[in-house]
């Protein structure tokens, strides 16, 4: 990074900090609000990104399956690649069979995190004594589940877009007359 860019970024960060401290900036997106107070969520965020990344990485096997599914539609006649008669490609659903299993670790991890967040109130200090005295209902419950649910929601949205993209590629690659 150039020094000028680094200075700009740093000064912007300081500006945001000052504005926040003066109460002039409402946080449209503050991840700290999704977790128990003082909870260091960075490790959890990085783990979720890792699990999601591994799942998406493994889902790239779809392209291998797509290639094989496309190749099967053709035959070679006089060294020419010709579409087989009445060839029907494997369905998109068949090509992504088992993909849901790639994201099970993510779902299990986030579910475990909901319980882990509750145990945070018992670790180091007993902040559960403070949380159980709060007049507002459901503060503890919300602090435990909001973060993981947001993670699941975001993952679901990204995956929906990803598999929409995969479907688009599938439709592009498979000739129209061979679509099931």
């Amino acid at each position: 990074m150039r020094d000028a860019d680094r200075r700009k970024l740093y000064s912007r960060g300081r500006f945001i900090k000052k504005a926040r401290a003066a109460g002039k900036l409402t946080d449209l997106w503050n991840p700290e609000k999704l977790f128990p107070p003082g909870y260091e969520y960075e490790w959890e965020r990085n783990s979720v990104v890792l699990l999601f990344g591994i799942g998406v990485g493994l889902s790239l096997q779809f392209f291998g399956r797509l290639y094989q599914a496309a190749e099967v539609l053709y035959e070679y006649t006089d060294r020419r690649r010709v579409l087989r008669e009445d060839a029907i490609a494997a369905s998109f659903g068949h090509l992504v069979t088992g993909h849901w299993g790639l994201y099970v670790p993510l779902v299990l991890f986030l579910t475990a995190m909901m319980i882990y967040h509750y145990s945070y109130y018992y670790r180091v200090t007993r902040s559960i004594y403070l949380m159980r005295r709060l007049p507002r209902r459901g503060v503890v419950f919300k602090s435990c589940v909001l973060g993981p649910l947001t993670g699941l929601g975001m993952a679901a949205v990204v995956l929906a877009l990803l598999y929409l993209l995969y479907y688009g590629i599938y439709v592009l690659v498979i000739p129209g007359e061979c679509l099931p």
Binding site: L50, L51, G101, L108, F109, A112
Partner: peptide, 17 residues
């Protein structure tokens, strides 16, 4: 250490794979 995220992550991955 008092954080258990790494053990949970390790177990979740192992259990699945």
């Amino acid at each position: 250490k008092t954080e258990y995220i790494q053990p949970i992550l390790l177990y979740v991955l192992t259990a699945n794979w």
